[in-house]
Design a protein around this nucleic acid. Structure first.
Lengths: 258, 258
DNA sequence: TCCCCCAATCCATCATGGTGAATTGCAGGA
DNA sequence: TCCTGCAATTCACCATGATGGATTGGGGGA
């Protein structure tokens, strides 16, 4: 009835070639997640042994699956009589994280990320105006210096990277953890997709760099002076004058299949 | 030299009571993550057996740890001679997901989430204007009907939930996967923190509900008519007239100083 | 009656040993 | 020379059996 699976043929009855071959622990984890999703949070799903048998995997494999769903906050485990696996309500923050994790990397274009980032910039500036300390402003000025240093060598890529570093530093000031986290990750996404900055006939590189630099310098000044109106005006200009169009995308061509 | 650890005392040398007791697989996973972070992406870390010995855990435990770091995209495993664990570059999208996952749930106040959501609303409306199909608009109108239904029973909570459902439906239209994902999760976060809607002397409930309903109805009309200016005007009004202040927070005990 | 302690249950690890598949490098043949 | 095929390496699972800790409920003593 419950003969052990000693040979591989006994426990690999699905040679159905699926994409990227989900491993057995992953499949078991999905089963568990489905089980947990089918009941109310807090409900008992059964003992490890029962569920392991239902998933049809060995102890070790089941433990791996368990670890995965636990990390996702889908189930919790309790010892003792009446113990076992329980569906647990996963916090919305975990859902956010997982929904982002589930995102297909290439499905999300850089342009999408840039658009989001631009929408968040004013919030960051607002927070900077309200919360930037003297040392924060000093750090921003340091980043500005770095930007200025790159203006000399006409290296558009170095310039935008320095620019992003400044933005990241500004973001650090915000007390809003969600905003900070999302924003810096967006910068990260954007940065990882950009290979080089290409000049544009309408905006020759040196001129573009100079104007961007001055805009950011003025922005930091406005933050230092707590000049709300000027700062918001500048960030609006920042996001309406072209910026993203001067960058070139890399990742849409998925080379390097390894 | 390498005596097996048959008794628990042999392999639990750290009775240091730490907060919430990270399990051994979790600790091993952290070690692996640290190892992977210390080298360049693509570098070899060693065979499973070598690393297992270094982590000082058993095979099963190490497999669990491995599964965790693999799920996080930190390492990859390859079979064959010269195989083993390799540090893998984790995509920025994964970093975003993980950084959100690392967020402390109560550290992030609802007000923070509301602020983010408000900043994203205009983007959603923009996308809706550009991409909403007839059936999308129809679905929005259905949600509007539901909102209207709740206006009758003076139930503020039901009203805002219906309101969020409408927003979620609008968000569905956007082709921007990151935006959609982040926005709906933000709604989720907000919704999960709100217990009830409290009237406010300046805005008695029925009046508040009626005005909000009409604003949203007008917004959907503007989307249906592709009236950009009107829609953006409405969403601006939407986010400047009070909204969040009429909701009562549950989870953040430390009252948001705004 | 109330409290404490014990037994039962269940999880978290451990150890050992086995089969099959993927990968690699080299050695030998066409 | 180039291709083919074998052997070695390493992973992915499997089974079995053991120890110790956490939790729970009930039974016995104060």
């Amino acid at each position: 009835m419950d003969a052990p699976a000693l040979r591989r043929a006994d426990w690999e009855p699905q040679p159905t070639d699926r994409a990227s071959a989900p491993t057995r622990p992953e499949r078991a984890a999905e089963q568990l997640a489905a089980l947990a999703a089918a009941v109310d949070p807090g409900d008992r799903l059964g003992t490890k042994e029962e569920l392991r048998a239902r998933c049809g995997v060995s102890v070790g494999t089941f433990n791996e699956a368990l670890r995965l769903v636990q990390a996702r906050g889908v189930v919790s485990v309790r010892p003792g009589p009446g113990g076992g696996l329980f569906a647990s309500r996963q916090s919305p923050m975990v859902r956010l994280g997982n929904s982002v994790l589930a995102l297909d990397d290439d499905a999300a274009s850089v342009a999408d990320a840039v658009r989001l980032r631009d929408a968040l910039d004013p919030l960051l500036v607002e927070d900077a105006l309200r919360h930037a300390s003297a040392s924060d402003v000093a750090a921003m000025r340091t980043e500005l210096e770095r930007m200025k240093a790159t203006t000399a060598d006409r290296d558009g890529t170095a310039f935008v990277r320095a620019n992003w570093a400044l933005h990241a530093r500004i973001a650090e000031v915000s007390p809003n953890v969600i905003l900070r986290s999302v924003y810096t990750s967006l910068l990260d996404i954007i940065e990882s997709h950009v290979l080089s900055v290409q000049p544009d006939e309408a905006h020759p590189l040196p001129e573009y760099i100079r104007s961007r630099y001055e805009l950011h310098a003025a922005l930091v000044d406005a933050i230092a002076d707590r000049d709300h109106r000027r700062a918001l005006e500048l960030i609006h200009e920042h996001n309406t004058t072209m910026d993203g169009s001067a960058t070139r995308d890399e990742a849409t061509t998925e080379e390097l299949p390894r």
